[in-house]
Nucleic acid binder design. Structure first.
Lengths: 190, 190
DNA sequence: GAAACTAGTTATCGATTGATTACTTACGAA
DNA sequence: TTCGTAAGTAATCAATCGATAACTAGTTTC
Protein backbone atom coordinates (compact mmCIF):
# COMPACT_ATOMS: atom_id res chain seq x y z
CA UNK A 1 0.00 0.00 0.00
CA UNK A 2 1.10 3.56 -0.71
CA UNK A 3 2.56 5.41 2.24
CA UNK A 4 0.00 8.19 2.27
CA UNK A 5 -2.93 5.78 2.24
CA UNK A 6 -1.43 3.73 5.05
CA UNK A 7 -0.80 6.92 6.98
CA UNK A 8 -4.42 7.99 6.71
CA UNK A 9 -5.53 4.50 7.72
CA UNK A 10 -3.42 4.66 10.85
CA UNK A 11 -4.71 8.14 11.66
CA UNK A 12 -8.29 6.89 11.46
CA UNK A 13 -7.54 3.95 13.70
CA UNK A 14 -5.60 6.13 16.13
CA UNK A 15 -8.51 8.58 16.32
CA UNK A 16 -10.79 5.84 17.57
CA UNK A 17 -8.29 4.42 20.03
CA UNK A 18 -7.26 7.79 21.44
CA UNK A 19 -10.92 8.64 21.79
CA UNK A 20 -11.53 5.50 23.80
CA UNK A 21 -8.48 5.50 26.06
CA UNK A 22 -7.03 9.00 25.99
CA UNK A 23 -3.52 10.07 25.15
CA UNK A 24 -1.58 8.35 27.91
CA UNK A 25 -3.93 5.36 28.04
CA UNK A 26 -3.39 4.56 24.39
CA UNK A 27 -0.52 2.31 23.39
CA UNK A 28 1.06 2.38 19.99
CA UNK A 29 0.59 -1.40 19.91
CA UNK A 30 -3.20 -1.08 20.13
CA UNK A 31 -3.23 1.57 17.43
CA UNK A 32 -1.09 -0.66 15.26
CA UNK A 33 -3.39 -3.61 15.74
CA UNK A 34 -6.45 -1.51 14.94
CA UNK A 35 -4.74 -0.32 11.77
CA UNK A 36 -3.51 -3.77 10.84
CA UNK A 37 0.19 -2.97 10.91
CA UNK A 38 3.07 -3.69 13.26
CA UNK A 39 3.76 -1.51 16.27
CA UNK A 40 7.23 -0.34 15.20
CA UNK A 41 5.78 0.80 11.91
CA UNK A 42 3.38 3.19 13.63
CA UNK A 43 6.28 4.68 15.53
CA UNK A 44 8.43 4.95 12.44
CA UNK A 45 5.82 6.77 10.42
CA UNK A 46 4.95 9.35 13.06
CA UNK A 47 8.22 9.51 14.99
CA UNK A 48 6.70 9.46 18.46
CA UNK A 49 3.36 8.71 20.06
CA UNK A 50 3.07 12.39 20.94
CA UNK A 51 3.49 13.38 17.31
CA UNK A 52 0.86 10.85 16.30
CA UNK A 53 -1.60 12.31 18.79
CA UNK A 54 -0.90 15.82 17.58
CA UNK A 55 -1.58 14.76 14.02
CA UNK A 56 -4.81 13.11 15.17
CA UNK A 57 -5.86 16.39 16.81
CA UNK A 58 -4.96 18.47 13.76
CA UNK A 59 -6.80 16.11 11.45
CA UNK A 60 -9.87 16.12 13.69
CA UNK A 61 -9.92 19.90 13.67
CA UNK A 62 -9.57 20.01 9.91
CA UNK A 63 -12.54 17.69 9.50
CA UNK A 64 -14.54 19.70 12.03
CA UNK A 65 -13.96 23.03 10.34
CA UNK A 66 -14.56 21.54 6.91
CA UNK A 67 -17.93 20.23 8.09
CA UNK A 68 -18.80 23.63 9.55
CA UNK A 69 -17.86 25.44 6.37
CA UNK A 70 -19.90 23.02 4.32
CA UNK A 71 -22.90 23.52 6.58
CA UNK A 72 -22.48 27.26 6.36
CA UNK A 73 -22.30 27.16 2.58
CA UNK A 74 -25.43 25.09 2.02
CA UNK A 75 -28.24 27.57 2.62
CA UNK A 76 -31.43 25.67 3.37
CA UNK A 77 -33.42 28.59 4.69
CA UNK A 78 -32.48 27.96 8.30
CA UNK A 79 -30.25 30.46 10.10
CA UNK A 80 -26.55 29.67 10.35
CA UNK A 81 -26.58 28.69 14.03
CA UNK A 82 -28.78 25.59 13.81
CA UNK A 83 -27.14 24.56 10.54
CA UNK A 84 -23.69 24.44 12.11
CA UNK A 85 -25.12 22.87 15.23
CA UNK A 86 -26.56 20.00 13.26
CA UNK A 87 -23.23 19.61 11.49
CA UNK A 88 -21.58 19.25 14.87
CA UNK A 89 -23.99 16.58 16.03
CA UNK A 90 -23.44 14.78 12.75
CA UNK A 91 -19.76 14.60 13.61
CA UNK A 92 -20.62 12.84 16.84
CA UNK A 93 -21.39 9.78 14.75
CA UNK A 94 -17.63 9.47 14.42
CA UNK A 95 -17.28 9.19 18.16
CA UNK A 96 -13.50 9.06 18.23
CA UNK A 97 -13.17 12.37 16.47
CA UNK A 98 -14.84 14.51 19.12
CA UNK A 99 -13.48 12.39 21.93
CA UNK A 100 -9.89 12.69 20.76
CA UNK A 101 -10.32 16.44 20.74
CA UNK A 102 -11.84 16.29 24.20
CA UNK A 103 -8.89 14.29 25.48
CA UNK A 104 -6.64 16.97 24.07
CA UNK A 105 -8.65 19.69 25.79
CA UNK A 106 -7.82 18.37 29.26
CA UNK A 107 -4.09 18.22 28.56
CA UNK A 108 -3.47 21.96 28.64
CA UNK A 109 -0.75 21.37 31.18
CA UNK A 110 1.38 19.54 28.61
CA UNK A 111 3.63 22.13 26.97
CA UNK A 112 3.44 20.62 23.50
CA UNK A 113 -0.02 19.04 23.31
CA UNK A 114 -1.53 21.88 25.32
CA UNK A 115 -0.36 24.45 22.82
CA UNK A 116 -1.84 22.48 19.93
CA UNK A 117 -5.14 21.97 21.76
CA UNK A 118 -5.47 25.65 22.67
CA UNK A 119 -4.72 26.68 19.13
CA UNK A 120 -7.32 24.26 17.81
CA UNK A 121 -10.01 25.45 20.16
CA UNK A 122 -9.34 29.07 19.29
CA UNK A 123 -9.49 28.26 15.60
CA UNK A 124 -13.05 27.07 16.09
CA UNK A 125 -13.89 30.18 18.09
CA UNK A 126 -12.43 32.36 15.40
CA UNK A 127 -14.43 30.56 12.75
CA UNK A 128 -17.64 31.15 14.68
CA UNK A 129 -16.90 34.83 15.22
CA UNK A 130 -15.65 35.75 11.78
CA UNK A 131 -16.85 33.29 9.17
CA UNK A 132 -20.13 32.23 10.78
CA UNK A 133 -20.93 35.75 11.96
CA UNK A 134 -21.68 34.85 15.59
CA UNK A 135 -21.28 37.54 18.22
CA UNK A 136 -19.26 36.75 21.34
CA UNK A 137 -22.25 35.55 23.31
CA UNK A 138 -23.62 33.37 20.51
CA UNK A 139 -20.22 31.79 20.06
CA UNK A 140 -19.96 31.14 23.79
CA UNK A 141 -23.36 29.47 23.85
CA UNK A 142 -22.55 27.34 20.84
CA UNK A 143 -19.28 26.17 22.35
CA UNK A 144 -20.97 25.51 25.69
CA UNK A 145 -23.51 23.23 24.09
CA UNK A 146 -20.76 21.51 22.16
CA UNK A 147 -18.77 20.83 25.30
CA UNK A 148 -21.84 19.34 26.98
CA UNK A 149 -22.40 17.06 24.01
CA UNK A 150 -18.76 16.02 24.13
CA UNK A 151 -19.10 15.25 27.81
CA UNK A 152 -22.25 13.21 27.33
CA UNK A 153 -20.57 11.24 24.58
CA UNK A 154 -17.40 10.83 26.64
CA UNK A 155 -19.46 9.56 29.56
CA UNK A 156 -21.19 7.08 27.27
CA UNK A 157 -24.49 8.42 28.54
CA UNK A 158 -26.09 7.05 25.42
CA UNK A 159 -25.93 3.61 27.00
CA UNK A 160 -28.36 4.65 29.74
CA UNK A 161 -30.80 6.46 27.48
CA UNK A 162 -33.40 3.71 27.69
CA UNK A 163 -33.01 2.85 31.34
CA UNK A 164 -32.59 6.19 33.10
CA UNK A 165 -35.30 8.84 32.69
CA UNK A 166 -32.87 11.56 33.80
CA UNK A 167 -30.56 10.66 30.95
CA UNK A 168 -33.40 10.77 28.47
CA UNK A 169 -34.55 14.17 29.66
CA UNK A 170 -31.04 15.62 29.70
CA UNK A 171 -30.15 14.34 26.26
CA UNK A 172 -33.38 15.60 24.77
CA UNK A 173 -32.60 19.04 26.15
CA UNK A 174 -28.96 18.98 25.05
CA UNK A 175 -29.64 17.73 21.54
CA UNK A 176 -32.48 19.80 20.10
CA UNK A 177 -32.24 17.94 16.82
CA UNK A 178 -30.56 14.86 15.53
CA UNK A 179 -30.89 12.98 18.77
CA UNK A 180 -31.15 9.83 16.72
CA UNK A 181 -27.65 10.27 15.34
CA UNK A 182 -26.07 10.25 18.76
CA UNK A 183 -28.27 7.42 19.91
CA UNK A 184 -27.12 5.37 16.95
CA UNK A 185 -23.75 5.19 18.71
CA UNK A 186 -25.25 2.63 21.04
CA UNK A 187 -25.50 -0.04 18.39
CA UNK A 188 -22.18 0.61 16.70
CA UNK A 189 -20.00 -1.64 18.82
CA UNK A 190 -18.93 -0.65 22.30
CA UNK B 1 -0.47 11.47 62.12
CA UNK B 2 -3.92 9.91 62.41
CA UNK B 3 -4.99 7.72 59.54
CA UNK B 4 -8.01 9.75 58.56
CA UNK B 5 -6.05 13.00 58.41
CA UNK B 6 -3.34 11.41 56.31
CA UNK B 7 -5.98 9.95 54.06
CA UNK B 8 -7.56 13.35 53.45
CA UNK B 9 -4.11 14.83 52.84
CA UNK B 10 -3.42 12.24 50.17
CA UNK B 11 -6.82 12.80 48.60
CA UNK B 12 -6.13 16.52 48.32
CA UNK B 13 -2.73 15.90 46.77
CA UNK B 14 -4.16 13.27 44.43
CA UNK B 15 -6.89 15.66 43.31
CA UNK B 16 -4.29 18.15 42.12
CA UNK B 17 -2.12 15.54 40.42
CA UNK B 18 -5.00 13.77 38.70
CA UNK B 19 -6.25 17.16 37.56
CA UNK B 20 -2.91 17.92 35.98
CA UNK B 21 -2.09 14.60 34.36
CA UNK B 22 -5.32 12.62 34.16
CA UNK B 23 -6.03 9.14 35.45
CA UNK B 24 -3.58 7.11 33.40
CA UNK B 25 -0.98 9.87 33.31
CA UNK B 26 -0.80 10.08 37.07
CA UNK B 27 1.59 7.79 38.93
CA UNK B 28 1.09 6.79 42.51
CA UNK B 29 4.69 7.89 43.11
CA UNK B 30 3.92 11.49 42.13
CA UNK B 31 0.82 11.52 44.33
CA UNK B 32 2.89 10.15 47.19
CA UNK B 33 5.55 12.79 46.76
CA UNK B 34 2.94 15.56 46.65
CA UNK B 35 1.43 14.20 49.84
CA UNK B 36 4.78 13.70 51.53
CA UNK B 37 4.51 9.95 52.01
CA UNK B 38 6.03 6.91 50.38
CA UNK B 39 4.55 5.40 47.23
CA UNK B 40 3.64 2.01 48.70
CA UNK B 41 1.76 3.74 51.49
CA UNK B 42 -0.57 5.42 49.00
CA UNK B 43 -1.29 2.06 47.46
CA UNK B 44 -1.83 0.42 50.82
CA UNK B 45 -4.32 3.00 52.00
CA UNK B 46 -6.46 2.97 48.88
CA UNK B 47 -5.84 -0.54 47.60
CA UNK B 48 -5.34 0.39 43.96
CA UNK B 49 -4.74 3.48 41.89
CA UNK B 50 -8.18 3.02 40.40
CA UNK B 51 -9.79 3.04 43.83
CA UNK B 52 -7.85 6.18 44.72
CA UNK B 53 -9.13 7.93 41.61
CA UNK B 54 -12.68 6.87 42.36
CA UNK B 55 -12.43 8.30 45.85
CA UNK B 56 -11.03 11.51 44.40
CA UNK B 57 -14.04 11.71 42.09
CA UNK B 58 -16.52 11.01 44.89
CA UNK B 59 -14.90 13.56 47.16
CA UNK B 60 -14.90 16.17 44.41
CA UNK B 61 -18.57 15.59 43.82
CA UNK B 62 -19.35 15.86 47.52
CA UNK B 63 -17.55 19.19 47.71
CA UNK B 64 -19.31 20.38 44.58
CA UNK B 65 -22.79 19.54 45.80
CA UNK B 66 -22.07 20.93 49.26
CA UNK B 67 -21.02 24.22 47.68
CA UNK B 68 -24.18 24.27 45.56
CA UNK B 69 -26.41 23.58 48.54
CA UNK B 70 -24.70 26.30 50.54
CA UNK B 71 -25.18 28.76 47.70
CA UNK B 72 -28.80 27.75 47.39
CA UNK B 73 -29.38 28.22 51.11
CA UNK B 74 -27.88 31.70 51.39
CA UNK B 75 -30.56 33.93 49.90
CA UNK B 76 -28.96 37.22 48.89
CA UNK B 77 -31.85 38.48 46.79
CA UNK B 78 -30.45 37.08 43.55
CA UNK B 79 -32.25 34.22 41.83
CA UNK B 80 -30.93 30.70 42.40
CA UNK B 81 -29.31 30.29 38.97
CA UNK B 82 -26.63 32.98 39.25
CA UNK B 83 -26.01 32.07 42.90
CA UNK B 84 -25.14 28.50 42.05
CA UNK B 85 -23.24 29.65 39.00
CA UNK B 86 -21.01 31.84 41.10
CA UNK B 87 -20.50 28.94 43.50
CA UNK B 88 -19.29 26.86 40.58
CA UNK B 89 -16.80 29.45 39.44
CA UNK B 90 -15.59 29.72 43.02
CA UNK B 91 -14.75 26.04 42.90
CA UNK B 92 -12.56 26.67 39.87
CA UNK B 93 -10.07 28.24 42.27
CA UNK B 94 -9.31 24.69 43.33
CA UNK B 95 -8.31 23.81 39.82
CA UNK B 96 -7.66 20.14 40.48
CA UNK B 97 -11.18 19.54 41.69
CA UNK B 98 -13.00 20.42 38.48
CA UNK B 99 -10.22 18.98 36.35
CA UNK B 100 -10.24 15.62 38.10
CA UNK B 101 -13.97 15.42 37.44
CA UNK B 102 -13.36 16.38 33.84
CA UNK B 103 -10.79 13.63 33.46
CA UNK B 104 -13.37 11.23 34.83
CA UNK B 105 -15.94 12.45 32.33
CA UNK B 106 -13.88 11.29 29.34
CA UNK B 107 -13.38 7.81 30.74
CA UNK B 108 -16.92 6.57 30.21
CA UNK B 109 -15.51 3.61 28.32
CA UNK B 110 -13.93 2.26 31.51
CA UNK B 111 -16.46 -0.11 33.11
CA UNK B 112 -15.65 0.90 36.69
CA UNK B 113 -14.61 4.55 36.46
CA UNK B 114 -17.20 5.21 33.79
CA UNK B 115 -20.02 4.07 36.02
CA UNK B 116 -18.84 6.30 38.85
CA UNK B 117 -18.45 9.29 36.54
CA UNK B 118 -21.89 8.86 35.01
CA UNK B 119 -23.46 8.53 38.41
CA UNK B 120 -21.69 11.68 39.60
CA UNK B 121 -22.78 13.71 36.62
CA UNK B 122 -26.38 12.60 37.02
CA UNK B 123 -26.30 13.48 40.71
CA UNK B 124 -25.53 17.05 39.73
CA UNK B 125 -28.29 17.03 37.15
CA UNK B 126 -30.73 15.68 39.69
CA UNK B 127 -29.74 18.36 42.17
CA UNK B 128 -30.38 21.07 39.60
CA UNK B 129 -33.76 19.65 38.61
CA UNK B 130 -35.14 18.84 42.06
CA UNK B 131 -33.38 20.84 44.77
CA UNK B 132 -32.49 23.93 42.76
CA UNK B 133 -35.79 23.96 40.90
CA UNK B 134 -34.36 24.25 37.39
CA UNK B 135 -36.43 22.99 34.48
CA UNK B 136 -34.80 20.65 31.97
CA UNK B 137 -33.68 23.46 29.68
CA UNK B 138 -32.26 25.59 32.48
CA UNK B 139 -30.35 22.60 33.81
CA UNK B 140 -28.99 21.85 30.36
CA UNK B 141 -27.82 25.43 29.92
CA UNK B 142 -26.20 25.48 33.33
CA UNK B 143 -24.33 22.26 32.67
CA UNK B 144 -23.30 23.49 29.23
CA UNK B 145 -21.73 26.59 30.67
CA UNK B 146 -20.02 24.50 33.32
CA UNK B 147 -18.51 22.18 30.76
CA UNK B 148 -17.17 25.14 28.79
CA UNK B 149 -15.57 26.55 31.92
CA UNK B 150 -14.04 23.16 32.65
CA UNK B 151 -12.67 23.03 29.14
CA UNK B 152 -11.19 26.51 29.35
CA UNK B 153 -9.55 25.65 32.65
CA UNK B 154 -8.33 22.31 31.30
CA UNK B 155 -6.84 24.03 28.29
CA UNK B 156 -5.09 26.52 30.59
CA UNK B 157 -6.59 29.30 28.51
CA UNK B 158 -6.06 31.59 31.45
CA UNK B 159 -2.39 31.76 30.52
CA UNK B 160 -3.22 33.51 27.26
CA UNK B 161 -5.76 35.96 28.69
CA UNK B 162 -3.39 38.90 28.45
CA UNK B 163 -1.80 38.08 25.13
CA UNK B 164 -4.67 36.83 22.98
CA UNK B 165 -7.70 39.06 22.45
CA UNK B 166 -9.81 36.07 21.37
CA UNK B 167 -9.15 34.43 24.72
CA UNK B 168 -10.10 37.60 26.57
CA UNK B 169 -13.35 37.94 24.65
CA UNK B 170 -14.28 34.28 25.05
CA UNK B 171 -13.56 34.17 28.75
CA UNK B 172 -15.51 37.34 29.38
CA UNK B 173 -18.48 35.78 27.64
CA UNK B 174 -18.15 32.44 29.40
CA UNK B 175 -17.66 33.87 32.87
CA UNK B 176 -20.32 36.52 33.39
CA UNK B 177 -19.09 37.10 36.92
CA UNK B 178 -16.12 36.21 38.99
CA UNK B 179 -13.73 36.33 36.07
CA UNK B 180 -11.08 37.45 38.51
CA UNK B 181 -11.28 34.19 40.43
CA UNK B 182 -10.41 32.10 37.43
CA UNK B 183 -7.73 34.53 36.34
CA UNK B 184 -6.13 34.23 39.76
CA UNK B 185 -5.17 30.71 38.71
CA UNK B 186 -2.44 32.23 36.59
CA UNK B 187 -0.36 33.35 39.52
CA UNK B 188 -0.88 30.26 41.67
CA UNK B 189 2.03 28.19 40.39
CA UNK B 190 1.87 26.31 37.13
C1' DG C 1 4.92 -4.68 80.72
C1' DA C 2 3.95 -7.49 77.02
C1' DA C 3 0.72 -8.04 73.40
C1' DA C 4 -1.71 -6.02 69.72
C1' DC C 5 -2.54 -2.56 66.68
C1' DT C 6 -1.57 1.69 63.91
C1' DA C 7 1.43 4.34 60.95
C1' DG C 8 4.85 4.17 57.96
C1' DT C 9 9.29 2.73 55.27
C1' DT C 10 12.82 0.30 52.15
C1' DA C 11 13.61 -2.95 48.80
C1' DT C 12 12.12 -5.33 45.04
C1' DC C 13 9.51 -7.66 41.39
C1' DG C 14 6.73 -8.57 37.17
C1' DA C 15 4.49 -6.55 33.53
C1' DT C 16 3.97 -3.05 30.27
C1' DT C 17 5.48 0.10 26.71
C1' DG C 18 7.74 3.42 23.54
C1' DA C 19 11.45 3.20 20.88
C1' DT C 20 15.61 1.17 18.27
C1' DT C 21 17.99 -2.01 15.31
C1' DA C 22 18.48 -4.97 11.85
C1' DC C 23 16.40 -7.48 8.50
C1' DT C 24 13.13 -8.73 4.37
C1' DT C 25 10.36 -7.94 0.36
C1' DA C 26 8.33 -5.65 -3.54
C1' DC C 27 8.80 -2.29 -7.22
C1' DG C 28 10.05 1.38 -10.52
C1' DA C 29 13.66 3.36 -13.34
C1' DA C 30 18.16 3.39 -15.93
C1' DT D 1 19.37 -7.19 -15.15
C1' DT D 2 20.34 -4.45 -11.44
C1' DC D 3 20.31 -0.84 -8.38
C1' DG D 4 17.95 2.24 -5.28
C1' DT D 5 14.13 3.10 -2.61
C1' DA D 6 9.76 2.55 -0.33
C1' DA D 7 6.96 -0.53 2.67
C1' DG D 8 6.93 -3.31 6.33
C1' DT D 9 8.23 -6.90 10.12
C1' DA D 10 10.53 -9.60 14.05
C1' DA D 11 13.32 -9.24 17.88
C1' DT D 12 14.71 -6.77 21.60
C1' DC D 13 15.91 -3.17 25.01
C1' DA D 14 15.70 0.24 28.73
C1' DA D 15 12.72 2.56 31.52
C1' DT D 16 8.61 3.06 34.07
C1' DC D 17 5.05 1.79 37.26
C1' DG D 18 1.66 -0.51 40.25
C1' DA D 19 1.82 -3.68 43.56
C1' DT D 20 3.77 -6.88 47.18
C1' DA D 21 6.66 -8.36 51.01
C1' DA D 22 9.08 -7.71 54.86
C1' DC D 23 10.41 -4.76 58.30
C1' DT D 24 10.50 -0.76 62.07
C1' DA D 25 8.72 2.39 65.47
C1' DG D 26 5.30 4.39 68.20
C1' DT D 27 0.87 3.94 70.77
C1' DT D 28 -2.87 1.77 72.99
C1' DT D 29 -4.92 -1.91 75.74
C1' DC D 30 -5.39 -5.49 79.05
Amino acid sequence: MKGDDRRELILEAATEVFGDYGYVGTTTAVVAKAAGVSQPYVVRIFGTKQQLFIEVLRRALDILLAAFRAALATDNGQPAGPRIGVAYVDLASQRGLLLSLMHGFVLGKDPVIGAVARDGFLCVYEFLRTEAGFDADEAQQFLSGGMLINTLVGLRMTDDYDTDPRVRELMQAALPEKLDIVLALRESGL
